[in-house]
Every structure is written in C-alpha cells, then in structure tokens.
C-alpha cells in the first residue's frame, strides 16, 4: 500500500486532535465563505474573481456586483434602524457617521476572515508536531523499511494537505448552510448571495495549499530523524 496512502489512514490516529484541527480550519473557512458570499468580505478578491467569473464562467454573473451589494446592505441597515427608532438617520450627522462606521466594519471583517482562516490552518502545525516521539518512531520505521527521506517528507506533507482538504470541504458545506441561515434570519438586509463555483473551489484549493505549505517545515524536520528511537 506504500506510505503515500498512510496520511489517510493516519486520520484514525489522534482522532480528537485531528478533529479539533479540522474544526478550527473549517471555522475559518465558514467565516470566510459567509463574508465573501454575502458580498461583505475580501472586497478586492471578490471583484477580481468576479470579473474572471464574468468572462469565463457565466455571462449573467455580472448582475451581482459586490460594491453595489455593499451599498445595498448599508442602505438597508440604515433604513432598518430608521424604522426601528422612528427617526430619520439618513439626514442626521449620526446617520452619516454610522454609514462610515459600517463601511470601516466591512474592512475589519475582511481582515478578520483572513486571520480566522490563517489561525485555523495554523492548527496543522500543532498536529504535525504533536507526539514527537511517536512521529520519530514512525520515521525510523520508514527508514529501516527502505523509504528514502524524500518519500518520507512527501508522505508527511501530504498529511498536512489532507487535513486542509477535509477541513475546507466540511467548512464549505457548513458555510453554505450558514449563508442561507443568515440570509433567512436577517431578512431586513436584502442580501445578494453570491455562491459561484470558483468561490467553493478557490477556498478549498487555497486552504489545502496553505496547509501543505505549513506542513513543510515540520515534515522536513521529522524526515531528518535518526534511527536511535527504533534501534536500542
């Protein structure tokens, strides 16, 4: 079966730790998805990708424009507040500063979403470092079986990538559900939900790639282990 299928079997080990790492990454993915798909987060990313979507994916995707989506949300929030408090916020200075505040908030959310994803993916590091002695034993075993350091390194980085892949798929599914829950709860905001295929694919690819990159150093370190743990 070789050592490249091991990362998959490896998910059986440290179930709790793998599970918590996957949850953390998935959490980041969910937040990112909700913010992007509702037209709030990662503005420039959305705009870029949307023009890409226009030309290659579907011509009618152009009806959803994230910046118009934003103003739409802002206006609907202000209208909602107007009707709740029974005052005309629109014409008062408070209304304007509220608008500015919400505008800033969007950029803060931008950052938060990326940070959340990044912190989630950092879980890969702790998972890879976890149980150092068990890892050294495993690497020693691979060496006496005749696997080269390169093969061992690749197998270990694949483990990191696999964590990212599983987590992002879970995150995308939960995020998808989350977006629709949010849009059905906050009906006062007329959300234009954008959930194009590139977003799903992009988030999965980016998360998996990030996890792979983060696994490189611990994997390289582990592949250099000597045989002293297996030989006595």
């Amino acid at each position: 079966m070789g050592i490249y299928t091991l990362p998959l079997k490896n998910m059986r080990r440290n179930k709790i730790r793998n599970f918590s790492t996957i949850l953390r990454i998935a959490g980041g993915v969910i937040l990112l998805l909700i913010l992007i798909s509702s037209g709030l987060g990662i503005n420039s990313f959305v705009k870029q990708a949307e023009s890409f979507g226009e030309t290659t994916l579907s011509p009618n995707a152009s009806q959803t424009n994230s910046s118009s989506n934003q103003t739409q949300i802002l206006t609907s929030v202000v209208t909602y507040l107007n009707s709740t408090f029974g005052i005309d916020l629109e014409s008062s200075p408070i209304g304007n500063s509220l608008k500015n505040l919400l505008g800033t908030l969007i950029y803060v959310l931008d950052g938060l979403a990326s940070i959340a994803l990044f912190i989630g993916v950092l879980g890969v590091l702790t998972t890879m470092y976890f149980n150092e002695i068990e890892r050294r034993r495993e690497v020693g075993l691979f060496k006496i079986m005749g696997f080269s350091e390169g093969q061992i390194f690749l197998s270990l980085t694949l483990e990191g990538a696999l964590l990212g892949l599983i987590a992002s798929i879970i995150g995308v599914i939960l995020g998808y559900i989350g977006v629709f829950l949010i849009s059905s709860v906050f009906t006062f905001i007329s959300l234009n939900i954008v959930f194009p295929p590139w977003l799903i694919l992009g988030v999965i690819l980016v998360t998996t790639f990030l996890s792979f990159i983060l696994a490189i150093y611990p994997a390289w370190l582990a592949s250099k282990n000597d045989l002293s743990v297996v030989f006595r």
């Binding site: 079997k9 005749g146 297996v230």
Partner: peptide, 30 residues
C-alpha cells in the same frame, strides 16, 4: 534506501507496528 527496500528486512526488539493500521495493513506498508 532502494537496496534496503528490495533486499533487506529488519526485525527489531520492538515490532514498531503502526497502532492505527491493522495487521494486514501493517504488513503491506512496505
């Protein structure tokens, strides 16, 4: 490594079987 893989088998004091693989999977690993 290649020579070892094809032509040399090691048995040590500890079996070093991977705990998350069953016996068949452990034996098929290399």
């Amino acid at each position: 490594a290649k020579l070892i893989h094809r032509d040399i088998g090691f048995i040590l004091e500890d079996s070093n079987l991977l705990p998350y693989l069953n016996l068949l999977e452990n034996v098929m690993l290399p």
